[in-house]
Nucleic acid binder design. Structure first.
Length: 561
RNA sequence: GCGCCCGUAGCUCAACCGGAUAGAGCACUCGCCUUCUAAGCGAGUGGUUGCAGGUUCAAGUCCUGCCGGGCGCGCCA
């Protein structure tokens, strides 16, 4: 709709350029905005304001000229000049109502677009190391990352969900030692407990399962415990598989699944780390100092150079990261988005610098990052810091068990990633109007209930006589509802462009709010068949958009509550 | 000290590429269930958008400097 109005304005500009009112060589950027105030019509353009100066005219005079040059059309019913020189467009009722027909016809596809043109995009998120249960921060990553994937998919991208983890480093060794200690019956208080060992109670479960020679099937790990307390290697494999499985179960309970699990160890075994190092050396971006090998990241915007190979011959963490992203690029992902906690933001510059130093034509801003800030969990007004199972942090499982999947996902995805989030457990679990999740779901369930009362015959005719009757809908709130529905595709697009799935949540809250108001003021199943059919069509369209939007958030759309 | 993010109503948050009178919910006050789900609706109260400059016809939004909070500044990951 915006595009169509912009198109009309474009034609008016061309005409005025031909007349000389607008300088022919002046670049014109046409902006059409939704209006905030309905007295300003449906859409507005600031075109006359931006062109006033180069044209040497008063904005309102120029607006007048632009309006006179607008081609004839059926889209717009009225145009006004307002304020300092805005051009306000009032859309014709018919063209507005059309959107309802579109929604009913397109169903699940309404709001989706093809702007991604089927290009491959990889979204890496969660990427927790298998050293313990997932915590709230991972939960935020999972909620934001998965929703982002859904949004990218809705914008026509071919999305791959990827989970990367370290299965072989010092931390994993530490994990193995901790499990081994538990297998041997030691406790964290014991003097011979491994230094910096993992102290959480979950380690006991891993140890017991290992001793019982259980078989573990995670998404990407399949191991049977040997039970041998002295076989550290066997313990390591088992512990990784065990915790991976636990994470998988949490993620499944959260409604999040991955296409690819990528092991850091494979970068070593397949020689990709070595190859990356060699390439960096060959390109002359490295030097030896103090027995270590350094990468000149300062050549690419870093504030100091970074060690890539330590004195002891091991690599620092960011080198495999560079090798990993080189691999992503070589796998054909021209676009990659990494969703991570903001506590790792210092890696952004390093990884990008490393990729530039490879000199392989990888674009400068590659990869994209979405960094989420910390999550603070509160209950009863107090900060919650500990969980029994993990010991030192609140687990994702705790939240899912306590407040439910939908509410947890909603709360974690509904705020912009770059601001800190307070997760109020009491609010999230309250089944009341305080809780936006239920507020939105309730709107969906209510419509389902109403449609359930309508006759099958009427429902069958909803797309024909229902849509045809939309002209009868003259109420302000009906008009407002249709306007909100019309904006949905823009919101999906906006979420995709800014990589901010949270805007979907905001939109749905607004749509639900307008609907609840409408529902309370007007009956849908009224005697007048024409009015009823129109309202049924409108309601069905709202239900569809609510369902589509909730789906992008990974939150369910219940038919009854 | 340096870098990144944030600062909007008492609280939690909105505000589309810079647009017109900064919006919701909670809390507080008062109303609405014999009618499709009251997990709902309506009305009222509540603001120098942290502070000070600058750019612009127009700034919560962009720029600079402060103040406050978070995170990061390792040959840890």
């Amino acid at each position: 709709m915006k595009e169509q109005v912009a198109e009309l304005l474009g034609q008016a500009v061309d005409q005025l350029k031909a007349k000389g009112t607008i300088p022919g060589d002046h670049p014109v950027r046409i902006m059409v905005d939704n209006t905030r105030d309905k007295t300003h019509g449906d859409l507005a353009s600031n075109l006359a304001l931006t062109l006033a100066k180069p044209c040497g005219q008063k904005p309102r005079d120029l607006a007048e000229a632009i309006i006179e040059s607008l081609p004839d059309n059926t889209l717009i019913s009225k145009v006004e000049i307002a304020g300092p020189g805005f051009i306000n467009f009032f859309l014709a009722s018919d063209s507005v109502a059309e959107i309802v027909g579109d929604i009913l016809e397109q169903g699940y596809d309404f709001g989706r677009n093809t702007s991604g043109q089927g290009e491959k995009v990889q979204v890496e998120f969660v990427s927790a190391n298998p050293t313990g249960p997932l915590h709230v921060g991972h939960g935020r990553g999972a909620a934001v990352g998965d929703s982002l994937c859904r949004v990218m998919d809705a914008n026509g991208w071919n999305v791959t969900r990827e989970f990367y983890y370290n299965d072989a480093g010092a931390q994993i060794n530490n994990l193995a030692l901790s499990v081994q200690a538990r297998v041997k019956g030691l406790t964290p208080d014991d003097p011979s407990w491994p230094e910096d060992g993992y102290r959480g109670e979950y380690i006991i479960d891993v140890a017991n399962s290992y001793k019982a020679k259980d078989t573990i099937d995670a998404d990407d790990q399949h191991v049977t415990g040997s039970g041998d307390p002295d076989d550290l290697e066997a313990i390591r494999h088992f512990a990784v598989a065990y915790l991976r499985r636990e994470q998988d179960l949490d993620l499944k309970a959260f409604g999040v699944e991955f296409d690819v699990f990528f092991l850091e160890s494979s970068l070593y075994t397949e020689g990709k780390v070595e190859a990356t190092v060699q390439q960096l050396i060959d390109n002359g971006h490295t030097y030896e100092k103090d027995g270590a090998l350094w990468l000149k990241t300062t050549e690419f915007g870093d504030d100091k150079d970074r060690v890539m190979r330590k004195k002891d011959g091991n690599y620092t963490y960011f080198l495999p990261d560079v090798a990993y992203h080189k691999d992503k690029f070589e796998r054909g992902f021209k676009r990659v988005i990494n969703e991570q906690g903001a506590d790792h933001h210092s890696t952004v510059t390093r990884v990008r610098a490393g990729l530039q130093a490879l000199n392989e034509g990888i674009p400068e801003g590659y990869p994209d990052y979405v960094l989420h800030q910390m999550v603070l969990v509160t209950k009863g007004g107090e900060e919650v810091k500990l969980s029994k199972r993990a010991g030192s942090y609140v687990t994702l499982r705790d939240l899912i068990d306590e407040v439910g999947r939908d509410a947890t996902r909603y709360f974690l995805v509904s705020r912009r990633a770059d601001s800190q989030l307070t997760f109020d457990i009491d609010l999230a679990r309250s089944q009341s109007n305080d809780n936006p999740v239920y507020y939105i779901q309730y709107a969906h369930a209510r419509i389902c209930a109403v449609l359930g009362k309508a006759s099958q015959d009427d429902l069958d005719n909803i797309t024909t006589s229902g849509v045809a009757a939309l002209g009868e809908l003259e109420l302000d709130d009906e008009r407002e509802l249709v306007t909100q529905l019309r904006r949905y595709p823009e919101v999906v697009q906006h979420a995709g462009q800014t990589l901010e799935p949270a805007v979907i949540a905001t939109y749905l809250k607004e749509l639900a709010s307008i609907f609840h108001g409408y529902y309370n003021n007007h009956r849908i199943l009224v005697d007048d068949p024409s009015v009823m059919m129109g309202r049924l069509a409108l309601s069905a369209a709202i239900r569809q958009v609510l369902a589509n939007g909730l789906d992008l958030l990974g939150v369910g759309a219940p038919e009854q509550m």
